[in-house]
Design a protein around this nucleic acid. Structure first.
Lengths: 334, 334
DNA sequence: AGGCTATTCTACAACGTTGTAACGTCCATC
DNA sequence: GATGGACGTTACAACGTTGTAGAATAGCCT
């Protein structure tokens, strides 16, 4: 059926191993031999059997990428960046969605599919910081986008605290004095929500502004709809505010939607800034200011660290925080 | 290093094949034996080596999904649906992006990665209808979302023509008489652009309205930015229109953006309808009417057809057209 | 020419799994 | 008590590749 090295070898009149050597670029082959083998390969349309190679080498050339949901624009963009970074290293990416559900995050870590991949890039949302034990796995792994103290694995994260601080400071600099925050997860300590809230509070403190619990808009899932709901709740509660820091762009877009529907001018009456700088932010009404978290850098670094681990590196767990940037657009114009 | 069936077998005091039989649910095993083996598996934390199984069985349990770009919301949603459908069949999905570039689409078809996957779901954008020859591949394949006549492969497509016709008719029913269309690809004959244009023209004809070339807005890539540019060109040309059929939602959102910026009321002065019904459409300003193309149905059907092909089915190529629905929202309200 | 090294190629044995065929063992039947 | 069949288990070979070790050849030096 399929063409194997055997067929190529007999056609070229050499041994199977010589074909293997040609395919793998082994240097010590006479040019004539190489040509003959190459011609046989071309004529027969031979392609290596990757299952056999994997079995022999103990590597598959596939890395896993576990993330909450592809339809969240930030993760779609992250997946895109990871796939490009992996391609540069000759790897392909197997994406798994966890839906930000705890059980599915645990399942991903233990799944038989891990035997199919050389390593895992994992972006957990639901796991608690106490659970670092489950991250002590026997395969190469790099965590993405969160901060879990003391975990036993490499970690590439965005500057959640400092980014949120800068975004809030951006609102302050623009004149806002009562700044609402959307996306709060009450009781959470280590997730993005907690960290971004920490940055928000730090910026208020920097500016000598009080922290008002009434300005906190809860939103469990960070979707447009929950952002819209949170904004509606804030407005219905008749809390006054002149700025909104949304913990991600989806929330911000949902909030913008509500502000627009309720005829509140942005940025005239309320300035809005988001986080993630997804492609959509640029095309929102009005264009949304946001924190660009260094997505490309995160993806490339994570893949690089994972490749090192796959190669057998045993150095202590590393933490990398990506560079961020506040991108000012019309939603926070004066 | 890793635990193999060998280890389990010796621990349980049985042959390797018996372990294999237990793992694969072979029925004729004495309960006592099965328990002993199962206990050994649990204690050693054994997991099958999928590379070895693949080599032996000639299947990997992986299917490929080649699409233009994950960051295009329609394709992110499609990928999501395909992954869920695949999971129900016990398969995992390897996503590849072509960027809608001809060379990369060809590369995907010929890539060595095809040896890693049992079959391919392929959503081509750049290939020309003349090129059906390249689709005559020696592995299972199902095409998604386009119509290429006479191709030698199974095909699951959305109702491009009828959906566009219904969307345009929706504008007509709402009172529009001069309907612009955004996303035209001049000279194209078989791609989505050509088909949706065909539907648009059919609806005009149904309504007895003239077809005016001045109302055609070109847009090569179907992004927000190109939709915005096309809308700007139409407005700058001072062509009058009271309705817009955008060939997808991204174009529609870009167009809405421009209409808003230029203070043209939607739906007051101009009604707008899109295509794809992505999640964003619901949250646009105003909420965007759109054609829901039956994404879940497309994904499930495509996976089912591919599974049949992988199982060896040799029936003639099949075409499936998914059910669609016009979802009316505020952008086409009266 | 003889000896040595470097180059080029090959035979063989794995990697971990599963299909095939065959071997016992047990029980029911005559 | 022999015969047959179902059941439970096993040995063996194969899937296609690559690492290892070594054989054959060529090229160089003295």
């Amino acid at each position: 059926m399929a063409v194997t090295m055997r067929d190529v070898a007999s056609k070229a009149g050499v041994s199977i191993k010589t074909v293997s050597n040609v395919v793998n670029g082994y240097p010590h082959i006479r040019p004539g031999t190489r040509d003959r083998v190459q011609r046989a390969i071309d004529e027969l349309g031979y392609q290596v059997n990757l299952s056999a190679r994997s079995l022999r080498q103990g590597r598959t050339g596939i890395i896993g990428l576990a993330l909450p949901e592809l339809v969240l624009p930030y993760f779609a963009e992250l997946a895109d960046s990871v796939m490009r970074a992996a391609e540069r290293r000759g790897l392909v990416v197997l994406i798994e969605q966890t839906g930000a559900v705890r059980e599915r995050e645990l399942e991903v870590l233990r799944s038989e599919r891990r035997r199919l991949t050389d390593g895992l890039l994992f972006s957990p949302l639901a796991l608690e910081p106490e659970e670092t034990a489950v991250l002590d796995v026997d395969y190469p792994m790099v965590l993405l986008g969160e901060r879990i103290f003391g975990g036993p694995v490499d970690h590439v994260t965005m500057a959640n605290v400092d980014g949120a601080r800068a975004a809030t400071a951006h609102l302050v600099a623009r004149g806002c004095r009562r700044i609402a925050v959307v996306g709060v997860h009450p009781g959470e300590r280590m997730g993005s929500a907690a960290l971004r809230l920490e940055g928000y509070r730090a910026a208020l403190e920097d500016a000598g502004l009080p922290f008002d619990p009434a300005l906190q808009g809860e939103a469990g899932q960070w979707h447009r709809s929950t952002g819209a709901e949170a904004m509606n709740r804030l407005l219905d509660a008749r809390v006054e505010f002149d700025g909104v820091f949304a913990m991600n762009d989806a929330l911000a877009l949902g909030a913008l939607h509500v502000l627009h529907a309720r005829r509140i001018a942005v940025p005239g009456q309320v300035a809005v800034v988001g986080f993630d700088d997804v492609d959509d932010a640029r095309y929102a009404e009005p264009p949304l200011s946001s924190v660009a978290p260094g997505r490309e850098q995160i993806a490339q670094t994570a893949v690089d660290l994972l490749v090192e681990r796959i190669a057998g590196s045993e150095v202590a767990p590393r933490r990398v925080v990506a560079d961020f940037e506040v991108v000012a657009r019309e939603s926070t114009a004066r």
